[in-house]
Each structure stands twice: as structure tokens, then as C-alpha cells.
Design a protein around this nucleic acid. Structure first.
Lengths: 161, 161
DNA sequence: TATTGTTATACTCTATAACTATA
DNA sequence: TATAGTTATAGAGTATAACAATA
């Protein structure tokens, strides 16, 4: 761990000199945020050809495995506020990637389904993302990879706590 | 790991039913993002009495250990664009937490320093954040805690790769 | 010519209040 | 009365272009 000089005061950094970041790098919140932003940047680049944000991709991926899910379910799962979900869904609909069908047991709700094109895009982008993840995780052993996933989930999955 | 039903198709979820999130939870990017958001929410609550965002806190913490650092250095370290840094610094200045002094060796630059009040606030909020981190990390062993930090840093620290 | 700090500005993301139609 | 979906809107965060002062 030992994150460099924290004992002997650094000699007043000049403009291009790096700063002592040992305090921040000891914080899980800081590390998670920086990692998420960095990974998000790569995600954005790779998804540019498909025009999908992280949220878009998450919705398609969820619908691929949860056909007929409602906006309410997707919002709850992804922690998105319903008003902010409307445009996202509308855009996917306009692109012909999803279809809204009346919910079989609730007249208020709308069941969301992937179209043929939506299925194809979900499948292709999922492959791209998995490949991206494999590259990113290249610096980690298989064991480290599953470990970091499990540990991160403890912070946002309410589970049985 | 095994993240529940992925084989047998779920029976068309009803409105309150949880969705199958196994695909997303296998992605480090997704997990890092969700964890960062969750931790950020708790951070926001605890820092509300001090009126500090994560960025504000990061700047104060860095200045506490890097007196005289310039905006350019802080921007590079925290990955903030200079135009977005101006208001942040100006607000800290208005609150009397930092001081801008002419840079000893570069007339273009400004050396940033914590004031007495800034030092006090940095010290107090650092204690609060460390306590918060200890609570969050309570579900992790000490070894897991250092592991997750080290692994996350691999994604955003360019290091020797 | 390049860099530091800055202004102006636009675009995205996120958050709240309030409405409608169904339950 | 409560919930699903929606509208309008405000605020925060993030992005680019362009400028003055200094290197």
C-alpha cells in the first residue's frame, strides 16, 4: 500500500509536479468514483458507434433478460427517477429498439419489450461491453475480478443487512 | 458468485417484482458506478452540515497536504476541467477557507493555501469522512478493504502500465 | 508558441412538484 | 388513498471555444 511521502513534507510543488494524493487514495468513495468515471469514459468511446449511454445499455440488457418489465421496475432497479426515465424510454422507442405493450394485469402500467432490432443491438453491445470489461480487468487476476465485484456490491445492494 | 435464475426464464415479472440483474452485476463498470453513487449519497448527507461537495472536500484535503498547489495541479489531479474549477475555488475563497497568493516562480499561476478556518474545516471533515468510510467498510475485512482500494486504483491511475 | 487562469455558454444529468388514469 | 406514467422545470455537473496575461 504505502503511498509515498506523507511524513516528510513535500518541497512546495511546482506547476507540473504531481500532488500527494495519499489521503484521497485511502478512501473507498474516492477510488470508486474515480474508477467509475474512468471506466465510463472508455464505455462511452466504445458505445459511440451504437449511440448508447450507460443507462441506455443497462435498460436494453435488463429488457433482454426481463421481457415485459415496466418503467417502474427498471427505475427501481437502476435507481433512476421516473421523470428522468421518460425521455430515455421515448428515445429507445423512436429508434425502434423497444415496444410498449399494455400490461396484462395492470391498466396503469406498460410492459416494455425489445423489438427484433432491439434484441440484435442488445446482443451485439453486450458482446462489446464484455470484451471491454475483459480488457479492463486484464490487470486483475480472475480471483481479484470477482472479489472486487462482490465487494462493490456490498455498498449498493441492500441485501440482507 | 452465481447470481440466481438466468437459466429458467423468469415468469414475466409483475410490477413490484425485482428484475434479474445478473448480467449487469457481472460488470465492473456497473458495480463501480452504483457503488460510487451510493457512497456519494451518504457522503452528501454527512457533509451537509459543512456545505462541502465531494469535489470541495477533495480540494481542501489536497491543499492540506499540498500547500501552495495551483489550480492547474488540482485540476490535473482530480480530473476537473479548468473552467469548471473557477467557481469552485471562488466559492471556497468567498467562504474564507482558502487564500490565493502569487506563485513564487510563475507569474501566471496562483498558489492556493488553506486559511486558519480552512485548516480547521479540512481537519474536521477529514475525521468525519474517515469515520464514514469506517462504517461503510464495516462489511469488509481489513484485507478486503485494502484489496478493493488497490484494485480500483488500477482503473484510473495510469501508473506504469 | 505554449500555458495559467478566466469568461461565456451549451448540453447533459439529476431532482421536485404536480397532473392523469387507473388500482 | 396509492401507484404508473407523464409534464414542466430548476439546478448541478460537465463540455468547448475563446480571451488576457505571462512564460
Amino acid at each position: 500500500m504505502a503511498r509515498a511521502r506523507k511524513t516528510s513534507a513535500p518541497p512546495a510543488p511546482t506547476n507540473a509536479e504531481p500532488l500527494d494524493t495519499s489521503v484521497l487514495e485511502g478512501l473507498i468513495g474516492y477510488n470508486a468514483r474515480r474508477a467509475a468515471i474512468a471506466i465510463g469514459g472508455v464505455f462511452f468511446e466504445r458505445m459511440a458507434p451504437y449511440g448508447l449511454t450507460q443507462a441506455d445499455f443497462s435498460v436494453l440488457a435488463l429488457l433482454a433478460h426481463n421481457p415485459g418489465a415496466t418503467s417502474r421496475q427498471l427505475c427501481a432497479t437502476l435507481d433512476i427517477l421516473p421523470p428522468n426515465f421518460v425521455n430515455l424510454i421515448a428515445a429507445l422507442d423512436r429508434r425502434g429498439l423497444i415496444e410498449r405493450r399494455p400490461h396484462p394485469r395492470d391498466g396503469r402500467a406498460v410492459g416494455l419489450h425489445l423489438t427484433e432490432a432491439g434484441h440484435a443491438l442488445a446482443q451485439e453491445t453486450e458482446k462489446v461491453v464484455v470484451e471491454l470489461e475483459n480488457e479492463l480487468a486484464g490487470r486483475l487476476t480472475e480471483r481479484e475480478r470477482t472479489t472486487v465485484q462482490r465487494l462493490l456490491q456490498k455498498f449498493y445492494l441492500r441485501a440482507e443487512r
